[in-house]
């Protein structure tokens, strides 16, 4: 299950500071949109606005036919944070079940999800008994356990080393093919964004303005060899250029 997300004139001000200038964006059901940009540019604010964790100063977010608040009440949203939200006293499988219990929705069979996520044999382990990569997989499994229509991910792989990050990114791309979701994915990592996303929302530096929307017209899931593809290299260079250019302009 996946739902379209419509962001219409959404902005957020904290006091006098603009965290996000009025922004418009239409995201198709099942589309993967990466939000990239320097720190403090408004990426996470936009994610939290869609999550209904922050109220907009102006504009409206709609998920399917629902407002963000209605979507949250209907448990249509899943959140993957940078630090895993796995409860330290719960076993991996119980943490996945916990999401379903709170949401009142059994989206997927917890044992099967963990098996599909490569965690067979680790279902009974607790957070500190799992490696960083495994823990983040449990975190994603828990966030998806109630089968949300939209998955909101805030730098989910940033705590992992480069190799692990690529590996888990490729795995996640394949996983989404099995369980399609609309994804908003905040990252600082340009290559990761180009590898995973259908579109990249490139932010300028603070105050938060979207500088450009870059499309990656290559079907997902993508083969790891895409990293060597001239299109990948060209798009990554273009995004890097956009961010550098903005940084230079600011300095």
């Amino acid at each position: 299950m996946a739902a379209p997300v419509s962001i219409r004139g959404v902005s957020r001000q904290f006091g006098e500071t603009w965290a996000l200038r009025p922004t418009d964006l239409e995201i198709k059901a099942g589309e993967f949109v990466a939000l990239v940009g320097p720190s403090g540019c408004g990426k996470t604010t936009l994610l939290r606005l869609v999550a209904d964790l922050v109220a907009p100063t102006s504009g409206e977010v709609r998920i399917g036919n629902d407002t963000a608040a209605e979507a949250r009440r209907k448990r249509l949203l899943g959140l993957v944070s940078q630090r895993p939200a796995v409860l330290p006293w719960k076993r991996a499988i119980d943490d996945v079940r916990f999401t379903q219990k709170i949401a009142g929705k059994v989206g997927f069979d917890p044992a099967k999800v963990l098996r599909d996520f490569g965690l067979e044999g680790h279902e009974g382990k607790r957070a500190r008994q799992l490696s960083g990569g495994m823990l983040q997989r449990v975190n994603i499994a828990s966030a998806m356990a109630h089968d949300p229509a939209v998955l909101l991910m805030d730098e989910p792989f940033s705590a992992l080393d480069e190799m692990k990050r690529e590996e888990i990114g490729e795995w996640f791309d394949r996983e989404l093919a099995l369980r399609p979701k609309t994804v908003l994915f905040v990252t600082h990592h340009i290559d990761e964004a180009v590898m995973l996303a259908d579109r990249l929302l490139v932010f300028s530096a603070s105050p938060g303005v979207v500088a450009e929307i870059v499309s990656v017209d290559v079907p997902r899931p993508r083969d790891p060899s895409f990293r060597q593809d001239p299109r990948f290299v060209a798009i990554a260079a273009h995004v890097r250029g956009l961010l550098m250019h903005k940084a230079v302009a600011l300095s």
Binding site: A51, D52, L53, R72, R73, R75, L77, G78, L79, S81, Q82, R83, P84, A85, L87, T99, I102, A103, S142, A143, H146, L152
Partner: peptide, 17 residues
């Protein structure tokens, strides 16, 4: 942990939960 509280909010958990 704030991330745990965000998780509960996104799941529309009650105060008691």
């Amino acid at each position: 942990d704030e991330v745990q509280l965000d998780r509960m909010r996104i799941l529309n958990a009650s105060w008691w939960q």
